[in-house]
């Protein structure tokens, strides 16, 4: 009987200390109504800006791909560095997600682009490292490598899934139903592979590139909270007001 008592204690211990991921903050979402709009590039406002990086440039973290010879061969001439912090030559930051956090009409429907956003697995890394999609928009997952990958997003608000993709296999198409900033994606076959997906329920978002700049077009006149998100440095917010056809610059900065 004592054995079963210990087993019962173990079970109770498990139950007491285990739980699923903490729920993300609930957001009040009104059911969108009316016709679905696309960004009005002709009459809407354009937000441009850059995300600067100040402080000492962090050293590159080189990736050891010896666990898989196919991956190692893909980078035999130049070992690959992790893309968690990429400081551009002009002192800006790459892979920062910029989006309109609030200010848009809550009940406005936005047209979902028919074109999928591509997330490729090439050279045993995700290309690109960060993408943004609209909720309901297809993400096209490709495997361009001569090796197997699994794609494993770990969202908090959307359902978690895990899917395999063999080399040369057909692309897979996935959608995210709920807005979520951000969804980490990993490959359990190659533990260094990481990517992030921003799922937004409107089309006003961007990811900074090689020059650290971003552009958001067709924004209706109004006052908005613009948020930037970086996987290591977190979030920064600014409030901006734009008028019709206005071009406005808004810059952000992270300190290393």
């Amino acid at each position: 009987m004592k054995l079963y008592a210990v087993a019962a204690f173990a079970l109770l211990t498990l139950i007491s200390c285990s739980s699923d991921k903490p729920p993300a903050a609930a957001t009040t979402e009104l059911a969108p109504t009316g016709p679905a709009l696309s960004p009005d590039e002709a009459n809407g406002a354009t937000l441009t800006g850059k995300v600067a990086f100040t402080g000492a440039k962090p050293p590159l973290s080189m990736i050891d791909m010896s666990a898989n010879p196919a991956c190692e061969r893909a980078h035999k001439d130049a070992p690959l560095a992790a893309e968690d912090i990429v400081v551009n030559p002009n002192g800006t930051l790459k892979y920062v997600f910029v989006w309109v956090k609030s200010g848009l009409p809550a009940n406005q429907r936005w047209a979902i682009p028919a074109t999928p956003v591509v997330l490729d697995q090439s050279g045993c890394q995700y290309k690109p490292h960060m993408i943004g999609v609209m909720t309901g928009q297809n993400v096209e997952l490709r495997n361009s490598d001569p090796t197997n990958h699994n794609i494993h997003p770990q969202p908090s608000l959307n359902p978690e899934w895990n899917d395999s993709q063999a080399p040369g296999g057909d692309p897979k198409f996935k959608t995210f139903a709920r807005q979520e900033i951000m969804i980490p994606v990993k490959c359990n076959v190659h533990p260094w592979m990481r990517s992030f997906i921003g799922a937004v329920n409107h089309p006003f978002f961007a990811v900074t590139g090689d020059d650290g700049t971003f552009t958001i077009v067709g924004l209706p006149p109004g006052t908005y909270v613009i948020q930037t998100w970086h996987e290591k440095f977190g979030t920064v917010e600014q409030t901006v007001t734009v008028g019709a056809k206005e071009h406005k610059a808004v810059d952000f900065s992270y300190k290393g």
């Binding site: 196919a70 359990n188 076959v189 533990p191």
Partner: peptide, 22 residues
């Protein structure tokens, strides 16, 4: 590597999966 093999009880749809990475 727990989810490097997304299926069970088969492994990548077979008895002997390609032994790569995780």
């Amino acid at each position: 590597a727990a989810l490097s093999v997304p299926d069970w009880p088969t492994s990548w749809g077979s008895l002997f999966p390609p032994l790569q990475g995780g």
